[in-house]
C-alpha cells in the first residue's frame, strides 16, 4: 500500500516533468535553449517514471531491465545532445546569446 502511494507519486511527478519539458521546448526562443528543456525530460523524468515502475515490480528481472533502460538513456542522452549541439554550431546556427542588457535589468 505504501509502495503503491510512492509509485503514484513517482509516476505522476515524472509525467508532469515530461509535460513541463514539452512546454519548455515550445516556450524557449531558440534551438540551444530548447536543448536544455529536452535534457530535463531525458534525465529526471525518465528516472522518476522508471523508479515508479521499479517499485511495483520489486526485486525481479523486470527491475534489472528497468535499471538497464535507465543506464542506456543516461549514457546515450548526453552523447546525442552533444552531437546535436555540435552539429548545429558547425551547421552555422547562431545561438541566441544574452549580453549586457540582462545584467542591467536584473
Amino acid at each position: 500500500m505504501v509502495l503503491d502511494i510512492l509509485s503514484w507519486i513517482f509516476l505522476v511527478a515524472g509525467g508532469l516533468l515530461g509535460i513541463i519539458g514539452g512546454i519548455g521546448i515550445h516556450r524557449f526562443p531558440d534551438f540551444f535553449t530548447r536543448l536544455h528543456a529536452a535534457g530535463t525530460t531525458d534525465t529526471l523524468c525518465a528516472a522518476l517514471i522508471l523508479i515508479g515502475l521499479g517499485l511495483q515490480s520489486g526485486l525481479t528481472l523486470a527491475s534489472f531491465k528497468l535499471v538497464l533502460i535507465f543506464a542506456f538513456i543516461l549514457f546515450t542522452s548526453p552523447t546525442a545532445s552533444h552531437a546535436l549541439a555540435n552539429a548545429a554550431l558547425h551547421g552555422g546556427l547562431e545561438p541566441l546569446l544574452d549580453d549586457a542588457e540582462e545584467e542591467a535589468g536584473s
Partner: peptide
C-alpha cells in the same frame, strides 16, 4: 563533457 551535458541547463557544444 558528458557530466556537463547531463546536467540540465548546461550543454557542452
Amino acid at each position: 563533457a558528458n557530466a556537463i551535458t547531463l546536467t540540465p541547463g548546461t550543454v557542452s557544444v
